[in-house]
């Protein structure tokens, strides 16, 4: 589904990614771990197509398409979803309105008519129930005045509504208490299907108690330096990132 080859990228002339290789297949859950400042969020932004990042070499192929040729919104419409580490507030725009706009723009991209209001509302009800979200949440403005936990739950709710092929969750666990963490993780697990994939970015092993990855990668200094099974996460937690450094 996703194939990243020898990807290098820089911001303001500073090289952050230095030749990343990553293969994600449909149905898989991957975890990317690593200490702060090693390029985890940059990798997520480059895949999503955020401005300001310059790809200096390599390629990203997503379902046979060269992502680097597509705009941010085209990538989103192709099925890339980014769960934000710091979700942005949009005052005065209700989550309902925001999601309906997003969904309809994505449908338009695929040549479909806008979703009928009734269908949209029942879908929203269904997903809210699945994620154990409060009824009122969707009437509130996007992320405005949300607690850290509410923001992250809102990201997962959007993911549930938009049903992406590939979800990249950037530090979704940061700022969450155990209950919120459980809800977020349950959401991710429930949304898991044989035809979609998830990349979880985190620097704690904690989240991986709830979301069990097929593959764990360690990103260090702009490169994936180690990949392994879920047990590697535990080993990392135990030995710390110094262990990785010493192996390099």
């Amino acid at each position: 589904m996703l194939s990243i080859k020898n990807l290098s990228a820089s911001i303001n002339g500073k090289e952050i990614l230095k030749g990343v290789n990553l293969e994600v297949k449909a149905g898989e859950v991957h975890a990317i771990m690593g200490p702060n400042g090693t390029g985890k969020s940059t990798l997520a932004y480059v895949i999503a197509g955020r401005q300001g990042y310059e790809v200096t070499s390599g390629e990203i192929i997503f379902n046979g398409r060269n992502l680097l040729e597509l705009s941010t919104e085209e990538r989103a419409c192709e099925g890339i979803f980014l769960g934000f580490q710091y979700p942005v507030e949009i005052p005065g725009v209700s989550i309902t309105n925001f999601l309906r706009t997003a969904m309809n723009e994505q449908r338009k991209y695929h040549g479909l008519d806008p979703i009928p209001a009734k269908e949209f509302l029942s879908k929203m009800e269904e997903k809210k129930k699945m994620l154990e979200l409060q009824d009122k949440l969707t009437n509130r403005s996007v992320n405005e005045g949300f607690s850290g936990g509410e923001k992250k739950k809102n990201e997962i709710f959007q993911m549930a509504m938009l049903e992406p092929m590939l979800a990249i969750l950037d530090e979704t666990d940061s700022g969450l208490d155990i209950d919120a963490l459980r809800i977020v993780a349950t959401g991710v697990n429930k949304l898991r299907r044989p035809d979609n994939a998830t990349v979880v970015i985190t620097h704690y092993q904690r989240l991986l108690d709830y979301i069990v990855p097929d593959v764990v990668h360690v990103l260090f200094d702009g490169r994936i330096v180690k990949s392994g099974g879920k047990e590697m996460a535990l080993e990392l937690e135990e030995k710390g990132y110094e262990w990785i450094k010493s192996q390099l």
């Binding site: 999503a48 197509g49 955020r50 919104e73 979803f81 991209y109």
Partner: peptide, 23 residues
């Protein structure tokens, strides 16, 4: 970027944000 990432074009995003602001 947040709007674009959800598939919303920059034009629609500006409309959305401005209407929210004026709500």
């Amino acid at each position: 970027f947040y709007c674009n990432q959800r598939g919303i074009s920059t034009e629609s995003a500006i409309g959305l944000i401005v209407n929210g602001y004026a709500k």
